Simulated scan of single mutants.
Amino acid sequence: MVPRDTDDRLNLSAGIASVSVALVLIAAKLWALFQTGALSVAATLADSALDLVMSLGALAAIAYAARPADDDHAFGHSAAEDLAALGQCLFILISAAMIAGAAAQRLASPAPAAIGAETTGIAVMGLSIALTLALVGWQRHVARSTGNRVVAADSLHYLGDLVPAIGAIGALWASRRFDLAWIDPAVAIGAALLMAQGALRIGRDAWDALMDRAVDAETVAGIEAIARGFPGVHGHHDLRTRRSGGRVFINLHIELDGSQSLTQAHDIGAALKRAILEHYPRADVIIHKDPVRPQ
């Protein structure tokens, strides 16, 4: 099993990388916006600014969630990750609405604003795509290694940034090549819709975690399959699950032969817990033992 401190270091490295990339992209896109005046560039700039806010929040949440359980937080601090994700959702929705409104106004204008320095904008968007791909690659490696949901969600968000960046390149190229100024605000509206869709998805997952919703049916079925037929276990009931941050909390009642010794019952419960952790290594498992008389 991977040591917890190793997971924490990997998660923190992904958070720091995310913040660093966001800072670089904000500076580059701000310069490109002044050069081009393109709303599609403004959309990706706003997205990068929100990326920075969310990355800072995610980094703080990851650092806080890494703290060990204490007397006041017996189940740890992982809920901080879900609170951060819920805040990220609200920021993205507000930004998407502002971008879509500005783009709609430009589309309705009888004389669309001219776009300049398209080559500069295309170069900056190319840099954005390259840095984003590198960051997503590292985040996905960390998410696979640690199972951290915040890192995985941040990776999906940055992956979604590639679509408006590629769209911005297309809008700038079309403006330079064919003088089609309407493509720029159209791409900005598309980017805003993608941002809103991603925000709602992140917010729903965070809300479900904060409301202690059970984990997905596949995971529940997997836990039940392990308990069903486990040597010494005559049945199970009252399986309860919830997710908090990157951890899954499992509470399970198992039925054991009441005539056996306490030591034997303990050994069976411990073996079942190890079996569950082998399949779900970042779970927190509590097993309650109920005595029964085997038929």
Rank of each mutant, 00 (worst) to 15 (best):
147 G>K: 05
76 G>P: 07
52 L>M: 08
150 V>A: 15
46 A>L: 13
79 A>M: 11
102 A>N: 11
43 A>T: 14
97 A>T: 11
119 T>Q: 08
54 M>D: 09
51 D>P: 07
87 G>Y: 03
130 A>D: 01
125 M>T: 03
44 T>V: 11
52 L>T: 08
115 I>S: 06
54 M>R: 08
45 L>C: 07
67 R>N: 08
98 M>C: 13
130 A>G: 08
136 V>W: 00
130 A>W: 03
151 V>H: 03
64 Y>Q: 11
143 A>M: 01
104 A>D: 02
130 A>C: 10
52 L>R: 05
146 T>D: 00
126 G>V: 10
61 A>S: 14
92 I>T: 13
86 L>W: 07
44 T>D: 15
112 P>C: 07
137 G>R: 09
60 A>R: 10
47 D>T: 08
44 T>P: 02
135 L>K: 12
130 A>L: 14
75 F>W: 09
141 H>L: 10
153 A>V: 08
149 R>K: 13
90 L>C: 14
148 N>G: 10
74 A>S: 12
145 S>V: 06
111 A>E: 08
153 A>Y: 00
124 V>Q: 01
80 A>Y: 09
87 G>F: 10
75 F>M: 13
60 A>M: 11
115 I>Y: 00
152 A>L: 10
65 A>P: 06
152 A>T: 04
45 L>H: 02
50 L>C: 14
94 I>P: 01
96 A>D: 05
145 S>R: 15
50 L>H: 06
54 M>V: 12
46 A>W: 04
65 A>H: 02
109 S>V: 04
72 D>S: 14
64 Y>T: 13
149 R>V: 14
101 G>L: 12
103 A>L: 03
50 L>V: 15
84 A>Y: 01
42 A>K: 03
101 G>R: 14
99 I>F: 02
89 C>Q: 12
100 A>L: 05
137 G>S: 10
76 G>R: 07
51 D>F: 01
125 M>P: 04
45 L>W: 00
146 T>S: 11
154 D>H: 11
52 L>H: 06
99 I>A: 11
116 G>V: 05
103 A>I: 06
148 N>C: 12
62 I>V: 15
131 L>K: 05
105 Q>K: 12
120 T>N: 06
77 H>A: 09
84 A>W: 01
111 A>K: 08
91 F>M: 15
130 A>V: 15
94 I>G: 14
137 G>H: 07
110 P>C: 08
154 D>V: 06
98 M>H: 07
54 M>F: 00
152 A>P: 01
98 M>W: 04
118 E>R: 05
68 P>F: 03
42 A>D: 02
98 M>A: 15
91 F>N: 14
103 A>D: 03
150 V>G: 03
75 F>Y: 15
134 A>V: 12
127 L>W: 03
102 A>G: 14
139 Q>Y: 00
115 I>T: 09
129 I>V: 15
50 L>T: 15
133 L>V: 15
90 L>H: 10
151 V>L: 07
100 A>T: 05
108 A>N: 09
42 A>Q: 09
117 A>G: 15
132 T>E: 04
